[in-house]
Design a protein around this nucleic acid. Structure first.
Lengths: 274, 274
DNA sequence: GGCTCGCGTTCCGTCATGCGGAACGGTGTC
DNA sequence: GACACCGTTCCGCATGACGGAACGCGAGCC
């Protein structure tokens, strides 16, 4: 009787090795939606995979420590964390940035962020805070659209390619203050290039403002730092401290190369213009 | 002519799905040995897999963002980091611990660690430090034998099962001060249980001493914090601060359940005694 | 120039291996 | 007792991963 409709429409021919795609989908399922301990049935619902298949996959992942079994279900395993910490774009940047982030924290006692760009999103690499932390939307390893965050705009200002991609897509509002016009965003990026400072005035989340500065290497932002605070307190106060921190991080990176993924096109021809 | 010898001897029947085992081996290869950008040929050497196979695997992993291609080779991708940050044992504990770790840092301006136990090893979840950081062997996402670190001994003291496993294995020395006798280690653990404090006096690395305290929930350590400093300065100074921080973290965890992987044996019968 | 070495890449015939519907045992619920 | 939902096992099928062989390329060497 089964209409047999492929759950997500594209059963046929996804690029890559199907087992691996499924395994990663499975791991990603833990990050979507609430709860961190999931039953096999719940995973079946989230991924659309048949239960025997999931059972087999989970057993294989458990052997490798990427998934743990607990009395009440499965959860992501510590081995996955270990691997994730060896990602060079995270590790090198964080190592260089942390001391400066600590300085910012001691000066402000507010939440301090470190982020990089991935596509048109911002991915948070680090986030330090004290006991009284504002209820920020970000989390380490989390992702937010670049156009509505302080770090995101700082990164876009020094990543023309990514900026173009953002300019080519709609800018969904997240609050009443989110920049939704490409024109306005372009002007904003221009202003950031002039001052070296980027602000987020409740553009992503009400009650949250940020000062951010890009970490610029060879005219290209490899990351950005920010200090977050409540709208009342004037964030401008930390502007120069954040900018100085970004410069310090830049210097501390020294000649550590932070390679960015090669865009698919530019690969065959090895002409690095820079 | 090919002798066809299976590279690592156990070609036949490794548990789990072979593609997945290989893929994880491949990812793990990036964490073994120096360098973070590896060529296909280098990966072939490290994993013992044939080049076409690797090529296919890498392409699949790249589609998922677990691996990036750069002009000079492959590196682990930011997506892997994202997944790793959703590991609950890391995330929940870190979130609760960070403010207290900041307190410790501000008080000492030394390196502050947060770690959990995995088997007979310690895995570092977090490590904060300032500009002048001692040259510590640890790194976030890194692994060290439990018996020769401050956090490790603190964790063992409140994990009888893991302690037993350590007692059943040889204790390789890492410095002249490493505890290599089971008898001595048992006494040390006993002392830790009495005082709630664990010391590492250059047992893992010369020039490095630590004070550590376990984060104990229901008589079971779910993690440990430590402050590291140079042998000259008396570490005892921070003993009570570290202990207090551990208690604070414990309280802050509240009723957040931190589930530990179910030991293989205890799974079928669902009798959780606690 | 030509030669060689090591690199990444493509092809393609083979067959191991992942697949998943069906069926089963256990537990909690109405 | 019937039902619903869970996790688990079985097993025949064919798909999709496998890897030896061969190729194009650039760097280094003579």
């Amino acid at each position: 009787m089964a209409p047999q409709q492929p759950r997500s429409g594209e059963r046929a021919s996804r690029p890559g090795i199907e087992v691996i795609n499924r395994a990663v989908d499975l791991l990603a399922a833990f990050t979507q939606g609430p709860g961190s301990v999931l039953t096999l049935a719940e995973l079946a619902r989230r991924t659309g995979l048949p239960k025997p298949t999931l059972h087999r996959l989970l057993a294989a992942l458990e052997v490798q420590g990427l998934v743990d079994r607990t009395a009440s279900g499965y959860q992501l395993g510590i081995r996955l964390f270990e691997l994730g910490e060896h990602v060079p774009r995270k590790h090198k940047l964080r190592e260089a940035a942390l001391p400066f982030m600590q300085d910012l924290f001691e000066a402000s006692h507010d939440t301090v962020h470190l982020a990089v760009l991935d596509g048109t999103d911002v991915v948070y690499l680090e986030r330090i805070h004290g006991h009284r932390a504002l209820n920020v939307a970000s989390r380490v390893g989390g992702r937010l659209p670049a156009h509505c965050t302080g770090v995101g705009k700082a990164l876009l200002a020094y990543n023309p390619e990514a900026a173009l991609r953002v300019m080519a897509m709609p800018l969904p509002p997240r609050t009443a203050y989110t920049i939704t016009s490409h024109q306005v965003l372009a002007e904003e990026l221009q202003r950031i290039r002039q001052t070296g400072i980027s602000y987020d005035r409740e553009e992503n989340s009400l009650g949250i403002t940020c000062v951010a500065a890009p970490i610029v290497v060879d005219g290209h932002a490899v990351g950005a730092v920010s200090v977050t605070s409540a709208p009342g307190s004037d964030v401008e106060r930390y502007a120069s401290a954040v900018r100085t921190a970004a410069l310090g991080i830049r210097r501390s990176l020294g000649r550590t190369p932070i390679l960015h993924p090669t865009p698919p096109r530019a690969r065959a021809s090895k002409k690095e213009p820079t």
